[in-house]
């Protein structure tokens, strides 16, 4: 290991360098606020952060959604997940909490997705809430049967990237530019991408909590149940 004194000196030196760096930044940088707000009427949404995420810098967000898919792929290739056994009779309090909380969380995720067009919110915030709901569901042992339907999970995890890339292809064909939405239609395309991204983000975050691929069980059980993300 590095000696304590060297480590402390090094940390202080880096702190001094960083402090100098942040203090020497211009006090009133022009930034991109004017450009971002100036083009806002054409972007299809009125929330500038959503416009940056899914219109001006859409490629960046596409790659970030792909990073989430890569992360869960890596986790699945390393470990097998552990699911708590589904015995809710021993945990009546948890069940009565989940009965109220899960619908509220799903509703909140959808609400955040919708208001992202004009207020703080969007796929990432909604996806985080949906991921939390999925973690609660897994802890309550409610997700055990879904977890055995691995092909469905794979589809859900990849949905964000698939829809995003398809929108890239379609907009390329329509307007000649990748993610250059047809005039006046930006909002619809953005909502479509965000809905798919929310499902994938929520599923990714929830399944990361499990920490591995679904357990090998009876593949694709016959029982029918309503499909959906977290």
């Amino acid at each position: 290991m590095i000696p304590r004194l060297v480590l402390g000196t090094l940390s202080l030196a880096v702190l001094a360098a960083l402090s100098w760096a942040v203090l020497s930044l211009p006090a009133q940088p022009p930034g991109l606020t004017a450009e971002a707000l100036g083009k806002l009427p054409e972007s299809g949404v009125t929330n500038p952060v959503t416009a940056v995420l899914l219109n001006y810098r859409g490629h960046d967000t596409l790659l970030e959604v792909a990073v989430l898919l890569l992360a869960i792929t890596g986790v699945w290739s390393l470990r097998q997940g552990e699911f708590p056994a589904a015995d809710l009779r021993e945990r009546p309090l948890l069940m009565s909490l989940l009965r109220v909380l899960l619908p509220v969380l799903v509703l909140t995720a959808g609400y955040l997705l919708w208001i992202g067009a004009f207020a703080p919110g969007g796929a990432f915030q909604g996806g985080a809430v949906a991921g939390g709901a999925l973690v609660l569901g897994i802890l309550g042992g409610l997700a055990g049967r879904w977890m055995r339907r691995e092909s469905l999970l794979r589809l859900g995890l990849a949905l964000g990237v698939l829809v995003f890339a398809s929108v890239c292809a379609v907009t390329k064909a329509l307007t000649g530019g990748l993610l250059q939405y047809p005039p006046g239609q930006g909002g619809v395309w953005i909502l479509l991408i965000e809905a798919a991204a929310l499902a994938s983000i929520g599923l990714t975050l929830g399944l990361l909590y499990v920490g591995g691929r679904p357990p090998a069980g009876p593949a694709e059980p016959g029982e029918k149940e309503p499909d959906g993300h977290g």
Binding site: P30, T33, V52, L53, G122
Partner: peptide, 16 residues
């Protein structure tokens, strides 16, 4: 940054 509203670009970067 200059202007009344905060710059949305770093916000979007932090969000993702």
């Amino acid at each position: 940054t200059a202007g009344e509203a905060p710059d949305p670009v770093p916000h979007a970067m932090v969000l993702t």
